[in-house]
Design a protein around this nucleic acid. Structure first.
Lengths: 158, 158
DNA sequence: GCTTAAATATTTAAGCTTGAAATATTGCCT
DNA sequence: AGGCAATATTTCAAGCTTAAATATTTAAGC
């Protein structure tokens, strides 16, 4: 139980407040996810994981390694393999070799993938704007800043 | 395009701020989920969905209908069927009849399920307390309140 | 050059998730 | 009673997800 001796004093009520926050965070996230998943399916016949991969590739015109995609999206390597397989079948991305290294496979959007993503992305931004409409732009910026700092604490903690 | 005529004026920069907030919210949620999933697996050999169902049942000593569980957790009916099947196999919950209505099936925790959940739940609260340690209790309460109001906006919008 | 270790990607098994279709039961209406 | 809509759950196919195991290739040490 050496862990109980933390740098900061932890009160039980604090713990409860954080737990309540986490529960609300999770519920809010799931509601937005459910809404966007449904719209993606209905309007573009695409899943969120495929959109996420396309969004990552959009930012990297020269392409990304499979491992770069999984690191960026916080999902496992094996996961990305399947999603990219389906995106290839859709004609939205291609795999290519690079650097003469035959382990790696560079993935990038096709022309069709780029134009499809542009349309989806615009629609997506509109959905989020309406779904988070209860939050003012100013609040959104404050919350973003707070969430950005979220990670640092336990990055080192193993 | 009748939807474009909204009650409030929407600026493009606001939309970007909300989108950024959403991306950060999703990333933060996924990081906490990944951390807790791993700990649940390592320390209790349980998955998060199973923990979630047990948490719902913990609040309802008399049991819940399958449909009540799925509504509460925001997941589909068919999903709950499989999770409860596995919890039954684990010996953590039981199904029973009720009201003489043979369509419904009431699910409740077993004694073993209750004691297992008590241990998991305490550990879980500690993990969250540390993972969200960068947020003060006061901030946590403010954010919770903000997120609570989240839903109402688009509940009616279909 | 040979051996070992590291890096990269895929495969596999188990489980989660959805939406739609199928099944079973109840209660209402005539 | 018979028919039929409403309710509750399960089944199913497709896809997502992880962790672990397996290749495959590259780089490093000697």
């Amino acid at each position: 139980m050496t862990r109980a001796a933390s740098a900061t004093v932890r009160r039980d009520s604090d713990s409860k407040a954080r737990l309540r926050l986490w529960v609300r965070l999770l519920r809010a996230t799931r509601m937005v996810e459910a809404q966007t998943r449904e719209r993606f399916k209905q309007q573009f016949n695409v899943t969120m994981p495929r959109f996420d991969v396309m969004a990552a590739l959009w930012r990297a015109p020269d392409g990304m390694l499979m491992s770069e995609i999984s690191r960026f999206l916080l999902v496992s390597n094996g996961n990305v393999t399947g999603i990219v397989d389906r995106l290839v079948a859709d004609g939205f991305v291609v795999r290519a070799q690079r650097n003469g290294d035959r382990r790696t496979s560079f993935v990038r959007l096709t022309a069709r993938g780029r134009s499809a993503f542009a349309a989806m992305s615009a629609a997506h931004e509109g959905w989020i704007d309406r779904l988070l409409g209860g939050v003012t732009a100013r609040e959104a910026e404050q919350l973003s800043a707070k969430l950005k700092a979220f990670r640092s604490d336990w990055e080192s903690d193993a």
